[in-house]
Structure formats: C-alpha cells, structure tokens
Design a protein around this nucleic acid. Structure first.
Lengths: 163, 163
DNA sequence: ATAGTAACTATGATAATCATAGTGACAAGA
DNA sequence: TCTTGTCACTATGATTATCATAGTTACTAT
C-alpha cells in the first residue's frame, strides 16, 4: 500500500492516540506488557505475531516513549521491555477495551459463566466486574489497583501458546 | 501482505477488542460517529480517509453490530450511519484514548493552554479534565453525560477539513 | 440540457504483513 | 572441542491491504 497517511498532524486527541493504538500488534504487545510479560520470545508466543512485527512494534513503542528496553543480563546481552509511566497510563484504554469485550464479544456461556478475566480490587477485595469505579468502595480503578484472574478457558489457552 | 491472522479465536477480552479496534480507520470513524457525524461524505472528509476505506470499515462495523445503516431519505435513497447500543458502549474506550493523548501527546502550550478538547459534566457543570469520575460530583462519566468543547485550534482544523 | 449532490465502486501503484528460515553471541554438557 | 540449546533478533519472497484519483449511479434543481 502507499505510505500510510500520517494522522498525528491533528489536534484531535483521539486521532493522536489512534496513530499509535490503531494497530492490532501494538495493542496485543501492550496487553502482554501489562500482564508482566517482558521478554521478546514470550511476547511473540503469546500474541501469535511474527518476530519481525514484534521487533518493529517494540521499536516504535520505544521511540514513542511508551516502552523502555533494558538489558536484563550481560554475556550474552539480553534485553527485555518495560512500560514507562507514559505506557502504564495506557491502562485505562486497555481496561476499557476489556470491559467492552466482556459485555459484547462473547457468546452466552462461552467462558463458563463468569467473565473471561476476573478483576479483584486489591484494596477491598471486591470483584469489580467491568466497572471503572469499584462497586465495593467507590474508589476509581487504575493500574496496580487490580488483580486479574483468568478464567479456566483463558488459562488453558495461555498454556497452549506458551513457549 | 498475507491475510491478516484472525485474533478473535482467543478468550482474551483485549484480544477480541483489538481485532476490531486495532485499526486506525475504525477508530477515526467511531470518533466521528460519537461527535454526531453520520453521513458518509462528512466522515470521509473529517477522517481524511479515502471513500473505499470508509466504505469497507462501515460495512465491517455494521456486520459487527456496532453501527446501523439507515435511509434518511428516499428518491434518491441516501443512507447514514448510527451507533447501536453496542457501539455507544465503546465510548469508554475512546474517552480513555482521549485522556491519554491529552496527558501525553501534546507539546507544551501546543493547544494554547487548556486541553485540545474540553469536557463538561452536563449534570453539574464541572470541567472534568481527563477524569473518568466527575471531580465535582463524583458520578461516573459515560456516553451522553458530557458536553465537548473543542479548543480554538481543533475548531479551526475541523473547519479546514469540512466538505 | 446542464450542473449539482452524495453515497459509493473501479483501477493501478506501493508498502506492510505473513510464514519460514537464518544469524550472532554466548552457556552447558558430552 | 564438538554439539546442542537459548534467545533476541534479521533476511527473504509471496501476498494483499491501503492509497490517490477518477468514475458511476440516481436523483433534484435550474
């Protein structure tokens, strides 16, 4: 295709986000990073993306200041990837995506009753459902406030994809 | 490129959302629909996307049940596009994207002081900033609760793009 | 009869993506 | 030392989505 038109030359904030987030690979990689998966091979396996795509997107995310590359060992030098503050602040976006999918993207009973991924408010222990404010204590929910518990189906899928 | 790999065969809710939302054109079209722009040509002009892409994505959104096509006049028959309930429920995602961009994607003073797009809580008149819960009255913020006011820069850009 | 409106479809060039295989730098065991 | 293994990547070639531009359809208005 011809060079993608640049969308960041807009004052619209959604347009600016869309430039980065309007990409399946970026979203999947971010998801894995939020789950604490920081290694290249793990991310490639979980997302099902080829190493080239993963490599290209991690470079992009790094250049955007969303991700930081760190050497986690010398000899041989090996790098992994960490979310920066700017990256961690994308939590709301992914959490909103998760909420929408839980409400609309599953067939009846597909996950065996509950949500595909359950989230518990660490502070008070309440199952937050898909709320952005804890239904138990009323606190707004952000990155680090929640503990995720995958359903059995999701757990099995992850095991299947793991390296 | 080869056929995009299908990502919806996952139990991960972010993966399922990413299949639809991980696309710049989809996000931009949704943005326009949330602004109340329902006509094909208006959406094409505002997003800067070609008519083929707009057409293809609207068909996709319709088949996903996110958008509804309605004839707004006979002779000649003309159609426009409306968000369904499933579509309106994507508000949280776009609003989170907007919040992130307002906090991270602008250079100092680029918008002339305030945010690129200001949102006022209809119920209490508070400027909500980028919060998901109204800082004035504590109510969670959803589609319809907010009144958007573009900054001068954004207003000018929209006028420029208009058909 | 001509021009205008608005929702699209057709065409050809280009570049992003995929699957698969390969590389480099080292560690550990035979 | 020779082989095997680990892991973060690159290289290659086929495929196809996207872009810009132009055209179509079905009308209304002058």
């Amino acid at each position: 295709m011809p060079k993608r038109t640049v969308l960041s030359d807009t004052f619209c904030p959604v347009g600016r986000s869309a430039e980065l987030l309007g990409d399946r690979a970026v979203l999947l990689i971010l998801r894995d990073l939020f789950f604490g998966n920081r290694r290249f091979e793990v991310i490639a396996a979980n997302t099902g993306l080829g190493p080239q795509l993963v490599s290209a997107r991690l470079k992009l995310l790094e250049s955007e200041g969303v991700v930081e590359r760190r050497a986690y060992q010398q000899r041989p030098v090996r790098y992994d990837y960490w979310l920066t503050d700017k990256g961690k602040d994308l939590f709301d976006v992914l959490y909103a995506m998760r909420g929408w999918a839980e409400r609309w993207a599953y067939r009846e009973g597909e996950t065996g009753g509950g949500p595909a991924m359950r989230y518990i408010h660490r502070a008070c222990g309440t199952d937050v459902g898909t709320a952005v404010v804890c239904p138990g204590c009323g606190e707004p929910l952000g990155y680090g406030d929640l503990k995720g518990e995958p359903s059995a189906a999701l757990k099995a899928e992850r095991a299947r994809r793991a390296v």
